[in-house]
Design a protein around this nucleic acid. Structure first.
Lengths: 334, 334
DNA sequence: TGATTTCGTGAAAGCGGTTTCGCGGGTAGT
DNA sequence: ACTACCCGCGAAACCGCTTTCACGAAATCA
């Protein structure tokens, strides 16, 4: 294999003139060891360049130092940089705490797919779920006592820890921004309404409308699916059915770009005639023409929050959900 | 921890009426066990729902079943969906072969950062590197006998296994496409020339020029860095210095989009006055206006190839680099 | 038929840490 | 000065699976 004979506790113990038990105590921060002996152990460790064998440690202690990041997917999601970005945030926090990230990209539906087996078999100390299609496995794992964190708000309000962006607040301020800039008739193109994020964004939109004292006209609420085509098609439909629409809030930047495209195709000027706001502040938002006013969510921070919540649970702390704030980024489109 | 008492070899052995050694043999596909006894073992395994404890297995056998995917990065790269996509391809192949993917996103430069330590400590059976900034660590690990795969062509031609897209061929056909559509003066905006991919794409461009019997005028070769801004800025400079440029090959779609933006800002029509070709066939290419003609690379396949090469090495096979073909996708921009 | 391989199998020794248990000596209580 | 504790530390069991080694039986050879 990879290594030439690495030292073990046996040789550390011998060089330091103590027992292996003491070596273990020192290396695990047990403070009941006499400082002088601890120093000797530490010296031996440094001198020999000792690195603990995590596998052996895992077997003996039952803690593997591995956290699974599970992306519930059938390979359609990868064009979206979102997952990679969140994962990198998770990974960074975990590494800082001496844990490693095990990536599992796989449909998760059932209770005994290979992912389920892996998680249940105690080979990871915890699991972080993305893009959850079902709560079935979650509840099952929760019952087994596996520390869990969900990225995104779960459907059922079980008491599983989760992190999410403030979708409601973001959508609310997007809609308010449109209105306060003079838009009277603001439409929304929602995301896949099966996702909680899309629902929350819709709710934020509705709340802003409510506060304005008006009610969105029928047909201003378009159910999209986060795709460019959906944004474009819904925008066209809106223009046909509601020629006086003067504001569009798209639940993500890609649909906003679709809308911009449809508007340009019809020679409608943005933001003069129709204002458009997106959500995410992805690369697209910065490079579109006109540049997109959008709601920024800090995706790396989301991952870091997930990692932090996991660490907290491993330390036996009670955890509360974390909702990250959003920021309105004003560019040219609204 | 996670599990209620899972069965061990001890109970499997007892129920099947054999020794633990025999259980191990059966579960590891050693065919020297009498079929009848093997069947009994298998029955016991099924009946008890036994799943092997990988940690214990790893300790005893020295094989952990984990492959590291190392992304050498300082957090700038995550907006690019490329890495996530490749990784998902890797992960899929590995999982199919009973291996798990350990993600490490971290600057890798030195020989003894935490990543280096982790890899050297034998806690993974192999490592797949992305976006390599230096060959230092690679050569060191290679010497230690750790199975390695690099995604992208390495700088030094050490004999490390790697997978890559046919950058040369892709750039070649992109440039030829521009020329055969009538472009006489074709510029290239390269990627970060420190990357081998950018160099290869430049070479492909030069080769196509050579075959056309012409030589690219001075100033037609612009050194970019894969960013939108670079694409835009270089395009503007080109238009200033070479008003008769009629073709632009950008080394990625994002820079091509920057070029399109610059062209639109100046009221230059695409593809009538200037033709543009990108590279990647990312989402951007499909949603830009006009839609971008580009070179498609199959990023998931790249990851799968990397995984496959890893598996082969673990099986002790000699491996050759894999170069994946590209495809010219003709849309509106050229 | 006796000597020699071959083959299937179990006992047992690891793999390299962690953790329980109990011992000896020092401190405290009376 | 005598029992009662407490504290630091080492011996040894243990985590669950792999692998070597040797043994008895069956097969091959002379």
């Amino acid at each position: 294999m990879a290594t030439a004979a690495r030292p073990t506790y046996a040789v550390i113990a011998k060089t330091a003139g103590v027992s292996e038990a003491t070596v273990s105590r020192v290396l695990n921060g047990d403070d009941s060891v006499h400082p002088e002996r601890a120093r000797r152990v530490q010296e031996a460790v440094d001198k020999l360049g000792y690195k603990k064998n995590r596998v052996a440690s895992a077997l003996a202690s039952g803690r593997t130092g591995l956290i699974a990041v599970v992306i519930d997917d059938d390979l359609s999601v990868f064009s979206d940089p979102f997952y990679g970005t969140v994962t990198s945030g998770v990974s960074r926090v975990l590494m800082e705490n001496g844990l490693q990230t095990v990536l599992m990209v796989s449909p998760v539906g059932s209770l005994d797919g290979s992912v389920a087996h892996y998680l249940k078999s105690g080979e990871v100390d915890g699991a972080i779920f993305f893009a959850l299609h079902s709560d079935l496995l979650i509840n099952n794992l929760k019952k087994q006592g596996l520390p869990l964190v969900i990225t995104g708000t779960p459907h059922s309000s079980s008491d599983v820890a989760f992190v999410d962006t403030d979708n409601f607040g973001g959508a609310h301020s997007a809609t308010k921004h449109l209105m306060s800039n003079g838009a009277k008739k603001v439409a929304i193109i929602t995301g896949d309404i099966g996702t909680t994020a899309a629902k929350q964004r819709l709710d934020g939109y509705l709340q802003a409308y409510r506060e304005s004292g008006h009610v969105p006209a029928k047909g201003l609420i378009c159910e999209g699916d986060y795709s460019f085509e959906a944004g474009k098609a819904h925008c066209e439909k809106l223009l046909d059915q509601h020629p006086d629409v003067d504001g569009i809030f798209a639940s993500n930047d890609l649909m906003a770009l679709g809308a911009l495209t449809a508007l340009r195709d019809r020679g409608i000027s943005v933001p003069e005639q129709v204002r458009v706001v997106g959500f995410d502040d992805s690369l697209i938002a910065q490079t579109s023409a006109p540049a997109l006013t959008t709601i920024r969510q800090d995706v790396v921070a989301l991952g870091e929050a997930a990692g932090t919540l996991m660490i907290a649970q491993l330390n036996g702390q009670e955890v509360e959900p974390i909702i990250l704030p959003t920021e309105l980024i004003i560019r040219a489109s609204a």
